[in-house]
Amino acid sequence: MNRSLRPLAATATIFVLAYLAAVSQHPGMLSTRVLGNFLTDNAFLGIAAVGMTFVIISGGIDLSVGAVIGFTTVLIAVLIMWVGLHPLVAFAIALAVSALFGACMGAAIHYLKVPSFIVTLAGMFLARGGASVLSPDSIGIKHEFYSTISKSYLLMPGGGRLTVIGGIMIAVFLFGIVLAHRTRFGSYVYALGGNETSAALMGVPVARTTIQIYMLSSTLAGLAGIVFSLYTSAGYSLSALGVELDAIAAVVIGGTLLTGGYGFVAGTFVGVMLQGLVQTYIVFDGSLSSWWTKIVIGALLFMFILLQRLVFTASAPSRKVLWKT
């Protein structure tokens, strides 16, 4: 097996085992209702994590994701409730603003040669601060469109509901998978994560690709903000605190190498679902503190980083070669 697939296979195996273990204790967890809730409850995290996957594969990091989600929810609430725009118009503006924000961060990272950690940290403070300036208080959103959306769903066999926002997340993952593995842009992202100097010498448009990567991440964070806004029907400057870290955890648990160059968007989906599974288990159990989610995720993360280290250092080049002379 391709060595970069091994952490992903491990994650998938752990997810299946953990799910079976959870089901053996709480048979109620084996239903499409629970699955539907998984998707709905983690939609914003999943969407943001797709963008984060691209950033990490390219060898960078985006700490601004949670703040961009928070900012977007406030911006949308302000545009709908105070300015009186239709939600769809507000969404379009929010996406445009976050795309521009990401492009600026990408440009700063490339042209100023500042590490992505620093640039996106500054972006995080800017977005979070900007949200608080727009409105320090939570703004409830009451609009016909919102109630329509939250009432619409696709009935799955077994009575589970695939909500609009759950559907958006799945669509984003499918889009991400195609983008990463079947387009030139995707191959450039991996190229940057592998070796930026080589990539440049091989003709990869480094500046354009870097800007596009952070634009993609911020736009998806903006979309996650829209989803979060639909999910909570509110805009609050402090919402989605720390989501960037959950997203990074999901990406790494999903088999993407934190140093870049290797990873799968599909793996991130498993990573998100694994986090959702732990949360759901804790809800079903009823006696555990919700902080156990963090502890379990922390332990998993640590385990996966160890696993990757082992897989990537143990497997030296050893492929057989046929030379014809």
Binding site: Y188, N195, S198, M202, V204, Y262
Partner: peptide, 13 residues
């Protein structure tokens, strides 16, 4: 790019 396939290395871009 050691992290990509031989084929992709030949034709990247």
């Amino acid at each position: 790019l050691p992290n990509r396939s031989v084929a992709e290395n030949l034709f990247l871009g």
